[in-house]
């Protein structure tokens, strides 16, 4: 790694001040993505601003028809939270399926969505549930948050504080993991709420995306059979060592059906 200065602010204001004073500074959450990047010398921030000292950023609140998760809440905390399991079991299951135990005990929801890895799981949950991302300066609707591969609507120095998930009538998540990293080769989050059905896909394309044809079909009939004939176009999907675009397109269909089945069972 290249040398950097390390800060552990005690308040959001202090964190913001540090970011403003050091344009080359980076926020540090669980470090599961950032630290390996530094070790490989692929990034050289002047400063690291560790969010680990801000207690308000961690924690889970369930009420008012919402599950609110603080940015610094680890995947393991979400996975094991009795409240999340009761109110939004699909989200707890999503968190439980991230990486491995070490990663789940360090990695955070804020870090995950800010990083916006095209194969990360949380983006599917955030978009699938139509969540709202709360930052230090505004609220961003899920559909506007993820803007591309490793790209979000966050402005320089903007800090994610919380994600607010509306509690749906039913939801399910199914992913086909990359056998090596266990990131999603294709992951589909399906949620049925008063406003209709949302289907969000991660891992398959350059960024999380919704599948309107599946949403319409599932709004008409919330069953796996309803989407059996919906084909996802492989043209815009990723090809890598573990999956071709055609295989991913196929897996999206399989995972969507499994997510619906899981939603119906929960």
């Amino acid at each position: 790694m290249y040398a950097f200065d390390y800060h552990k602010p005690r308040s959001l204001a202090e964190a913001t001040a540090l970011l403003n004073a050091n344009p080359e500074a980076r926020l540090l959450a669980g470090g599961m993505t950032l630290i390996p990047t530094l070790k490989q010398r692929l990034a050289s921030p002047s400063d690291l601003v560790d969010l680990g000292g801000l207690p308000d950023l961690a924690g889970i609140f369930v009420g008012d028809g919402e599950v609110r998760i603080g940015a610094m809440t680890t995947h393991a905390t979400v996975a094991h939270s009795a409240e999340v399991r009761a109110a939004l079991p699909a989200l707890a299951a999503l968190a439980e399926g991230i990486g491995d135990p070490q990663v789940r005990h360090r990695g955070t929801i804020g870090g995950s969505i800010s990083n916006a890895d095209p194969a990360a799981d949380y983006p599917a949950g955030v978009v699938g549930l139509g969540a709202t991302v709360v930052t230090d300066r505004r609220e961003i609707a899920a559909d506007n948050f993820f803007t591309g591969m490793f790209e979000t609507a966050l402005e320089p120095g903007e800090i994610v504080r919380q994600v607010r998930f509306p509690i749906p009538e039913a939801a399910g998540y199914a992913k086909f993991p990359n056998p090596a990293s266990r990131y999603a080769v294709a992951g589909v989050f399906v949620a049925r709420a008063a406003g209709g059905v949302r289907v969000a896909v991660t891992g398959a394309g350059p960024s999380v995306f919704r599948v309107p044809e599946m949403e319409a079909a599932l709004t008409a009939s919330f069953t796996p059979e309803a989407i059996a004939s919906v084909l996802v176009d492989a043209d815009d999907l990723n090809t890598d060592l573990h999956a071709t675009a055609a295989y991913r397109a196929h897996l999206v269909g399989v995972m969507a059906a499994r997510a619906v089945t899981s939603a119906l069972e929960s």
């Binding site: 090596a180 990293s181 060592l241």
Partner: peptide
């Protein structure tokens, strides 16, 4: 080398 780390090489 394409499979150069444990993120791509499956043990």
């Amino acid at each position: 080398l394409l499979s150069g780390s444990f993120m791509d090489y499956t043990m």
